[in-house]
Amino acid sequence: MKIIVCVKQVPDTTEVRLDPVTGTLLREGIPSIINPDDKAGLEAALRLKDRYEAHVTVLTMGPPQADLALREALAMGADAAILLTDRAFGGADTWATSSTLASALSALEYDLIITGRQAIDGDTAQVGPQIAEHLGIPNISYAEDLRIEGNTVVVRRQYEDRSHILRAEMPCLVTALSELNEPRYMTPRGIFEAFRDRTVKILTRADLAIDDGNIGLKGSPTRVMKSFTKAVRGKGTVVELDARDAAGWIIERLQEKFVL
């Protein structure tokens, strides 16, 4: 079985600090990590590898520094790593990103593609399903459990108040939730081997059979118009009441504000 896991390198948002003077986000020196949902997807692939001797390739698109995320995946146990990097890919929205990844994937052999549900820096949850659309393969999102039965993948998909059990024939794509598993730790030996003995295959614009109209900023139909920090509203009020009194209290406040 051949599995390809798509990952994204993201800033570790738990390490983000505020500039004590200006109050703005300090990005300098923030470590980069594998996006948590993607890492769970990688762990799921590695568990299939442990069980069925699957071959696991990890694929990312990003700047040259994204090499570090792939080394981490290799240290965890991935068999091969591919980095899609080119200035022409820069500024991509989800359409251009998924087009570029799908173009690379279409030249590779796979039975199963796993992506994370969404990245913690963009939170769109679009790239995984879009890849499946580009490739014309089935997609199951929000996997909180995943197993292989014959030539099919059986996934428990998280839903608001319930779960769905879905089956798809391979080849297919699954997007993983970080609740799927606890990713393994890298061993020091694995880390050293990932840097010393392993290679990351680099693919650039020239290696892909894709139109310029589908990559990078030019191939991105969406634009960020403005980013801004939400203004802080007034502080909340904490009132300790039992459920009945609390309901009454809330209704009174809403009436005061003419909401009710």
Binding site: Y185, M186, T187, P188, R189, G190, F192
Partner: peptide, 27 residues
């Protein structure tokens, strides 16, 4: 032991991690 904190400076031939001493000290 599973994450490799024992035998950090011992070669892999003895199931060590084969690292330099400073990596061990960081551990």
């Amino acid at each position: 032991g599973e994450i490799g904190l024992f035998g950090m400076f011992v070669p892999e031939a003895y199931d060590g991690q084969g690292l330099d001493y400073i990596s061990y000290i960081i551990g």
